[in-house]
Design a binder for these strands. Structure first.
Lengths: 186, 186
DNA sequence: CTTTTTACCTAACAGTGTTAGGTATTCTCG
DNA sequence: CGAGAATACCTAACACTGTTAGGTAAAAAG
């Protein structure tokens, strides 16, 4: 229901009706609506983290970059609601259970930044770019933009007309990343 | 109040209190909360549209692309709430007053697509990219990603810790666009 | 077999956007 | 100028939201 109708549109009473309980019964198992949503999302977030752990072993930083992008896109498209919760809500829940930030194997952003640090050290980057933080933010932003637009567009087209002839998200994301990396490296 | 606290957090009663009226008084001037917000946003949206009209006269498509990106970024950073309303909410208000879609001088996306159509016709694009729609979506997405992350990060940091060492949005946007365009053109 | 914990319910609260119905004030025009 | 109409605003209230208080029956513990 969260994925189909969105967080706001899914009411506690509607959830309770679905499982033949009262809304108040839910509060004996979860402290709040937010915590319920979070509990549902946590499993999938951990799956993303472990996928990153696998990728961490790849030697070539640019190849690792491609793979981490792929995994990220795959996650966002498979779990749009979780993605929305994590990166598109004004009140992001900072500390998702079991995901400590700062640890590259679990924190997507720090992982991405480290890749660029290695690429910089290896002399693979164009001279005008020297800031790993900036490079990471560029890469993340471009993918996030495509994914978030696809997610809100998907929600919007359920309730009306479609405006733009959207191309396949996964394919466009890959080709965009290729172009961006081509423009950043030498 | 909409810009400072966000759309949801700004209640009709709070707005009414601020101007020493009752909440119901507002409904004699605006049909709903959404229409009130829209009325406030419309002025700024038109400003963006006219800015695009000015840029439309530039000959070189790539130079025009740079300028349209600049104007877009400037708008988003100056009017974060309007930007959020337009591109980041699941229920986008499709028909903003005075902005008819499909018209390149007013519709940002169609404008961007036309630029790439011209660039393709002029042979300025790498052979692996032949779809103006895809090219437009890549450019728009990358800027949107950076801007939307900055906007939600700005909202988030008001209520707590900051997570990422964000670089200046305008500068990063420009350098990212440069890299992307470099990777797309020849 | 008693006691405590658990699981669930009915009512209700405080808050939201919004509407119905009524009352002054202002405007229109003969 | 003055009667009628339109406007501007108010108080109550509705339907909905997440959430809490307090009570009841069943299950678990000792």
């Amino acid at each position: 229901m969260f994925v189909r109708d969105g967080y706001e549109a899914t009411t506690m009473r509607a959830i309770a009706d679905k499982v033949d309980y009262t809304a108040t019964a839910i509060y004996h198992h979860f402290r709040s609506k937010e915590e319920l949503m979070l509990e549902l999302a946590t499993t999938d977030f951990r799956a993303l983290a472990t996928a990153f752990g696998q990728i961490g072993r790849i030697e070539d930083p640019i190849e690792r970059l491609r793979r981490v992008g792929e995994a990220y896109v795959e996650f966002a498209l498979a779990h749009p609601m979780q993605y929305q919760l994590m990166f598109m809500t004004p009140h992001p829940v900072m500390t998702v259970k079991g995901i400590t930030r700062g640890d590259p194997s679990q924190d997507a952003y720090a992982f991405l930044r480290r890749i660029w640090e290695e690429a910089l050290a290896a002399g693979r980057v164009r001279p005008e770019y020297t800031d790993a933080e900036e490079l990471a933010q560029m890469c993340w932003s471009s993918l996030h933009g495509l994914l978030s637009l696809h997610i809100v567009k998907h929600n919007a087209t359920q309730h009306g007309e479609q405006w733009i002839a959207w191309r396949d998200a996964g394919k466009t994301a890959r080709r965009m990343s290729e172009a961006l990396v081509r423009g950043l490296t030498r």
